[in-house]
Design a binder for these strands. Structure first.
Lengths: 106, 106
DNA sequence: TGGCGATTTGGCGATATTGCCAAATAGGAG
DNA sequence: CTCCTATTTGGCAATATCGCCAAATCGCCA
């Protein structure tokens, strides 16, 4: 694997890794509906605020979401809605696995 | 976040996590062209055979690739080609980030 | 200006991932 | 049967991730 390919795949993996966590998937799905501030997301997720804040910064770092400070709150929004289409393939994989399981039982 | 959502997102994250590694991205992209045996992939990647074998088992475990033993070799193939479309969004994110950088310099 | 609510950052222990080596396993060729 | 090649598995050290607490920031508002 040459260096150029390595760098390209490193960049790609960094972005995918940012989504490879249940809480961060929840954040992306939730922001797909509409923007939310950190406190709202924290309430929905049910984890420590600092934990949620770190998840948000991971997603922002790779450019998937955007933040905007308004008043005393920080509002996050989905910057790259295409990731939602991205997920439909994952659901396809899950469905295919389930059908494979069924076939074994039958 | 209720238990049902938690389980759904765990399953989704598991699959995405399987792709969140440069070497495994390389494997998926390579298999998208056509099937390869472990030895061929190992040569292309340039890592230890055992390392490549483990990466392959991670991808197989979540149902993204399939294996078939023929002769003394094991051939792997892409089972879920939709992941390639999945990647185009990631490229979009990378491009958007680059353009954002440019805007800052200008 | 002092204090309050919202958010981020530092740090720590627990856990997970990664990549190599060595050893086990599985088939095929001689 | 025995050697050889291809692959997988076990184990280990290095590194990264995760989630909480505590502390630092940052705006507002009285």
């Amino acid at each position: 694997m040459d260096t150029k390919t390595q760098n390209r795949l490193d960049a790609k993996a960094r972005i995918i890794k940012a989504m490879a966590h249940p809480t961060r998937l929840f954040i992306v799905e939730t922001l797909a509906k509409h923007e939310h501030c950190v406190c709202e997301l924290t309430a929905l997720i049910g984890a420590d605020v600092s934990t949620v804040s770190k998840h948000l910064s991971i997603l922002r770092e790779v450019g998937i979401i955007d933040d905007e400070k308004r008043g005393s709150s920080v509002y996050y929004q989905l910057k790259m809605p295409c990731v939602m289409g991205f997920f439909s393939c994952v659901d396809t994989v899950i469905k295919a696995n389930a059908q494979g399981q069924l076939k074994c039982i039958r």
